[in-house]
Computed example of a mutant assay.
Amino acid sequence: MTVDGDRVLVVSEDIEGDRTLVLAVSMDDDAETLATVATLLAVAVPVLLLLVAVTTWLVVGRALRPVERIREEVDGITADRLHQRVPVPDTADEIAALATTMNGMLDRLDAAATAQRRFVSDASHELRSPLATIRQHAELAHAHPEVTSIAELAEVVSEEGLRLQGIVESLLLLARLDEGAGTNAEAVDLDDIALGEVRRMRAAGLDVDGSGIHAARVHGDPRLLGQLVRNLADNAVRHSRGRVAIGVTPAGDHVFLTVEDDGAGVPSAERDRIFERFVRLDEARSRDAGGSGLGLAIAQGIATSAGGHLTVDDSRWGGARFVLTLPLTA
């Protein structure tokens, strides 16, 4: 109630007899306290929010400064500067992990670009050689028709044309395998493919052991798997001294196709490199003996596309043994 113009809080209590105790307390102090608190809140809350915003901006900005440096470094890396790397901070936190991941990605891009440049260079060299041979014989036949006959020139053009065709077809197949397209997967009897290669090589007068071939079915493109086995067989014949063996052995959930020879074998240091494109070992530098250097690369690509892998180790005769591992199918 209001007493003499002042708001007061009144409390009453009955006591002994007919008496009542009445206590009135002025509310001016409470009003002043509330006004003071409201003023403090009106000033302190905006100041506190401003302080929190500034602190957050400084802390987040400092935390993200390494990210900005990483962004600037990556933004400046072009195709001809793939050797550059992002600085890794010594904080051992997520920013350092991000920088390490970026450097790993740059390593892979650099390796891919280097491999692509080497591939283009090797392909250009392989394609240039038959063309140069054709051009040389054509120029010789034109300048000295009495030396080179039309039949000899036609034979050279035909042979080198077939070599060019083989290289181009191999390059196109590798491109298809890299894209993972163009394959018709179905159930394939791997033993039938192996036996077909044994018969083909025996018809050519070669000593081939096919006693280790057992029934096994895999899932893949029959044409590509046939080319894989033929590439391995041709490679074995090319390097053998007279003996070649082909085997198909199912074991557990996988089947192992082996092609081995009694040649010089593959040194341990070269066993990963021989599956690269246009790679020939020292004994196979001759183009006539060593092919174009794409056969084993194609075999590895086909094996990968079929869900398997291809390795090489020592054969029972000290030569090379190529082992194709594929998952079995019912």
Rank of each mutant, 00 (worst) to 15 (best):
L41Q: 11
L190Y: 03
L41M: 13
G220Q: 01
L23Y: 04
R128K: 14
H137D: 11
L109W: 08
G161M: 05
G76D: 04
G308F: 03
I15C: 07
R238D: 04
A38M: 13
V218I: 03
G161A: 09
I77F: 03
S121C: 13
G247Y: 01
L23C: 10
L173S: 07
D262S: 03
P87Y: 10
V208Q: 00
V86Y: 01
L164M: 14
V25H: 11
A233W: 03
H125A: 15
M201W: 10
E126V: 09
I95C: 08
V120G: 04
A289C: 07
V218R: 03
V255R: 00
V3H: 10
P327M: 12
A24S: 11
R108V: 08
D110K: 14
A99T: 03
E73G: 03
P130E: 02
G166K: 06
L224H: 13
E169Y: 11
R71N: 13
T101V: 08
S124E: 06
F322K: 08
R230A: 13
Q136F: 13
R287M: 08
D14Y: 08
A264I: 06
D192H: 04
T33D: 14
G226E: 03
A35H: 07
H142C: 10
E68F: 12
R243E: 01
F322Y: 13
L296F: 07
R108N: 11
S170T: 06
A97W: 05
I302W: 01
E146Q: 14
D288Y: 14
V266G: 00
D18R: 15
R280V: 02
R108Y: 11
